[in-house]
Design a binder for these strands. Structure first.
Lengths: 264, 264
DNA sequence: CAGTGGTCTAGACCACACT
DNA sequence: GTGTGGTCTAGACCACTGC
């Protein structure tokens, strides 16, 4: 039992602190603690997106645990897409850029074939301004009503056909100085631009999907008749630690595309 | 005996047998082979849904590998929801019944709160007949045009409000003798009934989602006005080995519910 | 208590990428 | 060749469940 590398107050810097004085024993396996430590370094930006993290051997030495324990920690991080393993090369901080899977969060695909058959989306930024958060926006982003938020409205077109109309809300603090040029000019996923320009990495997201009718304001922007059924997709995207960092409300035309989901 | 995972009989490191002439080395780790063997037993029905499979030690002895190798194989099966691990008790064949997560494949949730706040769905079977597969249905289910299929049309209501209208198509061969009574009478998920009555276990599914307008035939069944936007959800569900076993076309009302999806 | 899955270790070897 | 992640083993011990 004393063989445990911690149990006293070793390298990992007080990973104990179970405390809480509640009924739950809150046993936490060693590899979970290691995972937490690596996660902390990821958040702190010790290694930037796209860079390699130290090898398993190095991390094992740093934390004074066996390679197998580090491995299990990294396995979980890789399963959560926070990190990417590449045999023979190393383990790399995941990024929305230079990832073979572009647009990881966009589930809209053309009805026929893959997304490769159509060119990249043509972005058209309609608006990019700084506003005060409504009560609803604030609640979603864990802000206070009236706090500054960046708001963007844009359309995405595929092969010239406007297909997505969406509004984005971003916490004003983290996204100071967001410009139309940044939104429109960057080549690649918007989330990759967020990493590069603001150091904000989106890690996971939740979507609520409904069917709605296009209203008179939305219809011309998507070049459909008012009343056309559209997919309403509300997305809340999170960084590390389940901190919400983006609210997005999209309207998708589904006459030539569909939202594809896999159930396991 | 052919039950041995090694073609040469040399337990560790016996991974030889390189084709030397082909492009793909086709190296397959031992735990993957073990996984395949366990999978085969699952398909063959050696252990029924809900039952425990042999302990890791027993399987390790049976396959002449270490417990760790069996563990990794089972880990993957558990990650794919084919099997459920319960510490101190054993590993069990997953089932759509008696699972804490009822309705694993139904992503429609009430706008406010969880699915627990509303009672179970009220099922109403409108039709249950045997028909010949159209070209489209046949293609989806990997059958030939004109093959026998069971077709079911039903509605699901929540708290008295009809919310889902769906058609199901099932291969006639596997679902011989499907009756209205079975579809309506079983308490619990329909997929649990499929396991019990027909020995068919749905393992994963793909959904294609669109926004459509209710037509004159559909509207009254869902008690909405014609033209109301509805979510069209086409689901293809698979058993083991990626064999498609059910095509389902649903229309969801999204005035009090939404389709919830998590992106990782 | 015995039996199960879960954790951790230490060491060996394999497959892969780069140099 | 060197270094990386990936596989496999063997043994020890821990946590949970149920008799």
């Amino acid at each position: 039992m004393a063989t445990s590398p911690f149990s006293a107050g070793d390298p990992p810097g007080g990973a104990s602190a179970e405390g809480a004085a509640l009924g739950t024993p809150a046993f936490s396996p060693l590899y979970q603690q290691i995972k937490g430590l690596i996660l902390h370094s990821l958040q702190a930006g010790e290694w930037k997106p796209g860079e390699a993290i130290p090898s398993e051997m190095e991390l094992a030495a740093r934390f004074r645990v066996s390679q197998g324990t580090v491995r299990k920690a990294i396995d979980e991080l890789a399963a959560e897409n926070l990190v990417v393993r590449r045999q023979g090369k190393g383990t790399f901080v995941a990024t929305h850029a230079e990832q073979q899977v572009q647009y990881r969060f966009l589930k809209l695909v053309p009805d026929s074939g893959d997304r490769d058959t159509e060119g990249p989306a043509q972005r058209h930024v309609l608006e990019c301004k700084r506003v005060r958060a409504s009560a609803e926006i604030a609640r979603s982003l864990a802000l206070r009503t009236g706090d500054a938020v960046a708001q963007v409205r844009r359309t995405l077109a595929f092969d010239g056909v406007p297909t997505i109309l969406e509004d984005l809300w971003l916490p004003g603090n983290a996204f100071k100085g967001l410009t139309v040029e940044q939104m429109a000019g960057y080549h690649g996923p918007t989330y990759a631009m967020f990493e590069l320009e603001f150091g904000v990495r989106m890690v996971r997201a939740e979507e609520k999907i409904r069917a709605v009718a296009a209203d008179d304001a939305q219809a011309p922007l998507l070049q459909v008749a008012p009343g056309t059924p559209l997919l309403s997709v509300e997305r809340l995207a999170y960084t590390y630690n389940d901190v919400p960092m983006e609210l997005r409300r999209g309207l998708y035309r589904t006459d030539a595309h569909h939202y594809r989901n896999e159930l396991n």
